[in-house]
Simulated assay, not measured.
Amino acid sequence: MDEPGSRRERPAKEALTRRGIVAAAVDVMGAEGLGRVTMRRLAKELDTGPASLYVYFRNTAQLHAAVLDELLGAVDLSPVDAKGDWRDRLQAVLASYTLVLFEYPSLAQSAVSARPSGQNYLRLVESILTLLDEGDVPPRQASWGVDLLLQLATSTAAEHAGGDDPEEWNAVAAALRAVQPETHPRIAALGEDLLSGSGPDRTSWGVRALINGVLATPRTEDGVLGTPRTENGVLGTPRTEGERA
């Protein structure tokens, strides 16, 4: 009859680290979905107690944000240093970000409210700001614009995270097509154009619209709307080096 081995003979557990916890969370999410990435589930995966995980993460939301940041390392930032129009390259970066979220549907929905703050997120933000600066977007507009651009990409991924339900889309299409010009003249006039364009086409247009809007819309100054900006600067006056910094 075999005797139980001494605890001293068992291999020592690896030291718990933030990186190890995030790696385990990514594995659990890939196999079971983000909903299963909880402190209790990870504690079981790492052979420890839930209390030990709270040393590294205050709550599950913070853990999910760390998982998102880990996956943002897969975003292709090479367009930043490539040649070509800065708008096209910015759109390519945002498209890569969206595709990363597409690969993890449950994470895409969580990303709408997640607040990542790791190095991968910072690199992504820095890349977007670099391209906006290359396009001569005023710094104050760029600082708010980066948030809008990421929100559009995130919400696009989240909207399609669960897959498009044909019945729901058919119901929307039927409702739009059934309107009467007497009650909804503008919907009736646009007709099928309201439903036109594939997902990527609409997303691409949305990104372009936001980029152009960020470029052309000044921030408010002391609660008063700033002066409209032309291509070369405010009212056609070239911006100084200080304004470009």
Rank of each mutant, 00 (worst) to 15 (best):
T17H: 06
L225D: 11
S6V: 07
I187M: 14
S155L: 15
V112K: 07
S196Y: 03
A95K: 03
G30A: 13
K83E: 14
V67A: 02
T38A: 09
T156S: 12
K13I: 05
L210N: 01
D133C: 12
V214K: 00
A245I: 07
A142F: 01
R7Q: 10
L148T: 03
L176R: 00
A31P: 00
V207D: 00
M1V: 09
Y54W: 14
A31Y: 06
I128W: 03
D147Y: 10
A188F: 14
N59V: 10
N212P: 00
L195P: 00
L99C: 04
A209C: 10
R41I: 05
L132M: 15
L42V: 14
Y121R: 06
D147T: 11
G49T: 14
G73H: 02
G5Q: 14
V125N: 04
Y54K: 11
A157K: 02
G223F: 11
E32T: 10
Q180A: 10
L72D: 00
T130R: 15
G49K: 14
Q141L: 03
A25D: 07
V80G: 05
T183V: 12
A31I: 03
N232S: 14
G233R: 06
L101Q: 00
T98G: 06
E159S: 14
A175T: 10
T220L: 12
D76F: 11
D69R: 06
A216F: 03
R123I: 04
V137G: 11
R208T: 09
P11A: 08
I187P: 09
L46A: 09
L107C: 06
N232G: 03
V234A: 05
A173K: 08
Q151T: 12
A153I: 00
Q151H: 10
D193R: 15
T227L: 14
S96V: 08
K13C: 04
V26H: 02
D165S: 12
A178N: 09
G145K: 04
R115I: 08
L124C: 09
V125D: 07
Q91L: 13
L77T: 03
V55Q: 14
I211Y: 09
F57L: 09
P238D: 01
R7M: 12
R18L: 08
D164K: 13
A15Q: 12
R41V: 15
S78N: 06
T203P: 01
P166V: 08
L225S: 14
V80L: 10
R202F: 03
N120W: 00
E221P: 00
G5H: 11
A158M: 02
G233C: 08
Q109H: 04
S106L: 03
G223Y: 10
Y121G: 02
L132Q: 12
E192T: 13
E221C: 08
R229G: 01
L71Y: 07
E168Q: 13
S127D: 01
G30Q: 10
E9I: 04
G163C: 05
E231W: 08
L71F: 07
A153T: 01
T17V: 08
T60F: 01
G191P: 04
D222M: 11
P238T: 01
S143R: 12
